[in-house]
Amino acid sequence: MFLIPDPVVRFFHRMASPPHFYALTERLMPWLVVIFLLLTAAGLYGGLYLAPSDYQQGDSYRIIYIHVPSAWMSLFIYVVMAVAGAIGLVWRIKLAEIVAISSAPVGASFTFIALVTGSLWGKPMWGTWWVWDARLTSELILLFLYLGVIGLYGAIDDKRTASRAVAILALVGVVNIPIIHYSVEWWNTLHQGPTVTKMDKPSIHVSMLIPLLLMALSFKFYYLIALLQRARTELLLRERNAQWVKNMISEAK
């Protein structure tokens, strides 16, 4: 513990206290929403209007501004979930458990969006909705991993136990994701090369890259908003018998 500077420890202790978390996120929320809206507007304007159309793919490449950020988020959120789960498992911090489980549905949605947009993009580009390409397959398996986490959480009645179960599962998943990813990749390269190759990635032009990065950032903020909203609801549900919730409700009346 002595390795961590005092202010950081204090910050975490305060964040771990449910009433403080609830009050702080309430104040943060409008700002997050404004930043998210600005980033999305800028990213979409840049991506759909300013960026030139691709010399090969025409305008249909523009789905990249949804597809790629969601694919990035799908992995990012799984890692966040596992880290939060590990923190909850080791230090029994209630909020870490809540963050872990609140991330799962958001991550699953991003994975689903990445799959759907990928398949919509694949139809005009590759001429087929689905190929058993390495990336698509590992993304699909990632979706199953998310669904497993959500299903396990729903199946256990005691929510604190369920959080620990989910944390263990997420950690097992994090160890497995690289193995699954590379095995799927080798599976496709050990076979004959895929007949419909993935589009060669030419070094992307700056005018296309900036909107992409803006969109990626805006998706991060969206995740933060969705995560905090879910966490707040989950927190109220779990703490419904605690004094601070009762006080808050009586004050609101």
Partner: peptide, 25 residues
């Protein structure tokens, strides 16, 4: 993870089968 549940059967396949992928491949 599921031994304490009364109806763990379905959820078990969802948990375990994706992790079996590398071996199968």
């Amino acid at each position: 993870l599921t031994v304490g549940l009364r109806r763990g059967g379905m959820i078990l396949s969802l948990l375990v089968l994706p992790l079996y992928v590398p071996v199968l491949i």
